[in-house]
Simulated scan of single mutants.
Amino acid sequence: MSGPLPTVHVMTVATSVAAEVAMDVTVRTSDLAEAAGNVVRLLPPRLLDPVLAGLLVRAEPDGLVLAGTDRDRAVRLRRDATTRLAGAALVPARPLAATARALDAPDVRLVVEGSRLAVRTPGARFALPLLDLDAHPGVPEPPEVVGRVPGSLLAAAALPVAGAASRDDTVPAFTGLRIRAEGERLVLVATDRYRMAVASLSWEPVRGGLDVLLPSALVAEVARQVSAASTVEVRRTGSGADRVAVSWSGTTVACGVLDSPFPDESRYLPSTVDCEVLVDADRLAAAVRRVAPYAGPFSSVRLEVGDDALRVQGSDPASGEAEETVPATVDGDPVARVFRARYLGEALSAFSGSAVRLGMRGVHQASRITAAEPAANGVDLRYVVMPIRPR
């Protein structure tokens, strides 16, 4: 054998820099568990780079900051804490979140001990390896505020709309949720080409405009977390809006926008229908759910409109057949349409607790679902579901 030996790259934790890392802080266990869990849920679940899979823990004189990033998304959370020694450490995010969630002590102490971050409670110690803090890209400061919205309204609008987005990332645009400002209204739109949800809610514009396409799964997770926040600040960078962030209650989440064309929802929201049915959303959704097991491998249910009822039918040679009648008020000529049970059921679930108007047009044209009465919170939700060709 001749020539130099090949170079071997070995991934290690940051034991060489451990001596430069110091930190000692005490925080409420519930605050740590909630914050670490939120970071884990807001970042992608599988990050191959151990540094990006790490959680940046920074003890500051006025509290504890937890942060993480995958270079596209960035999350920063601040919680009250008692700091004995300010400093920062980078540790594996998921083990820290799991450890904090399992603890039953009211407070927990985080202290750097050599090449480990010790998680201490009375009678227990858990030690996580330190990752290379210098290799972490850091979490930038959030961009400027363009508007504000109550957290409860954002959650009420974003969660049903995000459910209409595609789970298939083959066409990235349809995995996104479009957020557009129209004066003092904020419009949210998502579609997977077979259905579309549109919600409009009031907001307080501050400066500039807003028209961005964001990952729907991230928007949905943010919506779940902001539901109790009195105010959510919406932020964006520059006129190009290549990054958007939302801030609430000591938390900031930022991400890049999806650069894809998105359909104009006005083309798919019918202004007139051939038949409109007034029906209780929960009763119809329950009927669809019970009939669906009899609807064959494609789970296609048939809605047949009578004079004062809506019949939900399903049949398949292998599964059998089912029919359930739901009371309804009908305006227009009786019609029959076939829908995917899951799409129709999810659309109806978005209006749970209220009556809806189901408007149907031609056999190959979109059917719309709207609330029978305006929502008390002012959120205007409209849903469009495409019927399928009868077999």
Rank of each mutant, 00 (worst) to 15 (best):
P270D: 11
G296V: 05
A229T: 12
G163D: 07
R368Y: 08
S2H: 14
E20M: 06
G250V: 11
L218P: 00
P140K: 04
R389D: 07
A74G: 15
D192I: 11
P263K: 01
L55H: 03
P61D: 06
G238E: 05
V212D: 11
A81M: 05
R71Y: 02
A118T: 12
Q225S: 14
D264K: 10
G87A: 02
R342I: 00
G320M: 00
V111Y: 00
E204K: 11
V108Q: 02
L348V: 10
L269M: 15
D132V: 02
A74M: 09
V171Y: 12
R368S: 15
T170H: 07
A33H: 07
L269C: 07
P140C: 07
S299A: 13
C275P: 06
G54K: 03
G114V: 06
R340K: 10
V171G: 00
R267K: 13
V356K: 03
R289V: 06
R236S: 15
D168M: 08
C255R: 06
E304W: 06
V335N: 12
L117S: 04
R236E: 10
A33P: 13
G359I: 03
R125C: 08
L48K: 08
T7M: 08
V301G: 03
V17P: 00
P205C: 10
R290K: 04
R368M: 14
I179R: 08
P297S: 14
V301M: 00
A98L: 13
S216E: 01
P374H: 09
L56Q: 13
E221H: 09
D134L: 06
A197Q: 07
A164E: 12
R178G: 08
S352W: 06
